[in-house]
């Protein structure tokens, strides 16, 4: 039975269902319960934005607040994962990854291969990504390409509540380390979500809109901007196909290539910086594998190559928007099919 719930509730529900189903699932993070040792209410916060609220009442000590020591507790989650638990560690903001990165990219990511296939590391690291929260340079980054660069970790970034629930359940059941990226500006967005448990397999993109003129590929928040752009293009009789990648490692190359072979035109939208990004990755792959199908140069719409600015007027310019996506699509349709070098602004 489906009801309308927010992405925040969907994530809470996925954790709840998996903790109920599997006693080896433990959840840890800073203030994910809240109020530990403090004189007032227990379960006072349920995470900094309330995502894990209420889980402590149901699952008790399998939810653990941690000291402010990301290297130690993320590392402990990884170690416990190699010893039979299925930990979900919450990192609050993905920007804090810098503090504990070794445990992820030299430890968790390497074990399976480096130990000759003998180790499994079923750990999930949840973290908020993305700009638009007025949270400035150290709480707003879209660091997805940092992780897709590393073999051995899987990278997930849902754009809606339905996908968030199914992908988080899949992440917890998966036997490899998963970086689960939650866009903080999508937490409140509601859609129909079944109450029961379901898993969405990794590496399957979602085609949100069919169209034969141009393919727009994105993930996370900018999927919604891409959909807005597609509506605007449709008013000019340009039909865009919008592909939501959902998982970035593994990535669904087949769906991308299949779409580009039909449309001949590609716009990739990425909230990360332009260099070595998901956008440049997709553009390169298509250039290599579907060159013959392309009728115009691939267009990338990304954040600019600057840190996230604080001032709302600047931050709004920073995030790729629907007009710039539509504009990029139109460029692929123009006679030359090329454009001046450009950024999202």
């Amino acid at each position: 039975m489906a009801r309308k719930i927010s992405m925040k509730q969907a994530i809470n529900e996925a954790l709840d269902l998996e903790m109920t189903r599997d006693p080896s699932v433990v959840v840890m993070g800073e203030d994910i319960v809240g109020g530990t040792g403090s004189p007032g209410e227990d379960d006072a916060w349920g995470g900094v934005l309330g995502v894990t609220k209420g889980l402590y009442a149901k699952h008790g000590d399998r939810l653990m607040d941690t000291p402010l020591s990301e290297s130690a507790y993320v590392g402990a989650a990884i170690g416990a994962a190699t010893c039979g638990l299925r930990p979900v560690a919450e990192l609050m903001f993905i920007d804090f990854m810098g503090v504990c990165f070794d445990q992820i990219f030299n430890q968790a990511a390497k074990f399976r291969y480096m130990f000759g296939g003998k180790a499994e590391t079923p750990v999930v690291i949840r973290a908020m990504v993305g700009a638009g929260f007025r949270a400035a340079a150290q709480h707003s980054q879209m660091l997805t390409p940092v992780f897709t660069h590393i073999p051995g970790v899987k990278v997930v970034c849902p754009s809606n509540a339905y996908d968030a629930k199914g992908l988080l359940i899949q992440s917890i059941r998966d036997n490899d380390p998963v970086i689960f990226c939650e866009h903080k500006n999508l937490y409140g967005l509601e859609c129909d979500v079944p109450a029961e448990s379901y898993a969405i397999p990794f590496g399957e993109a979602n085609v949100l809109r069919d169209g034969g003129d141009v393919t727009i590929v994105s993930y996370g928040l900018t999927v919604h901007r891409a959909m807005e752009a597609a509506e605007a293009l449709a008013r000019d009789r340009v039909e865009a196909e919008v592909v939501d990648l959902r998982t970035l490692s593994p990535i669904d190359w087949d769906t991308i290539i299949d779409s580009v072979e039909r449309t001949g035109r590609l716009v990739v939208v990425d909230e990360a910086h332009p260099r070595c990004s998901i956008a440049s990755d997709v553009a390169a792959f298509v250039g290599q594998n579907a060159f013959g199908a392309l009728k115009a140069g691939v267009q990338m719409v990304t954040a600019p190559h600057v840190p996230v600015p604080f001032s709302p007027v600047l931050e709004d310019l920073y995030i790729p928007n629907a007009p710039s996506i539509a504009e990029a699509a139109r460029r692929t349709l123009s006679p030359t099919g090329t454009s001046p070098r450009s950024i999202a602004a």
Binding site: D31, G37, S38
Partner: peptide, 12 residues
Amino acid sequence: GYAESTSRNWAV
């Protein structure tokens, strides 16, 4: 005494 909502006496 506090780090966000968590007590110093618990966390240290």
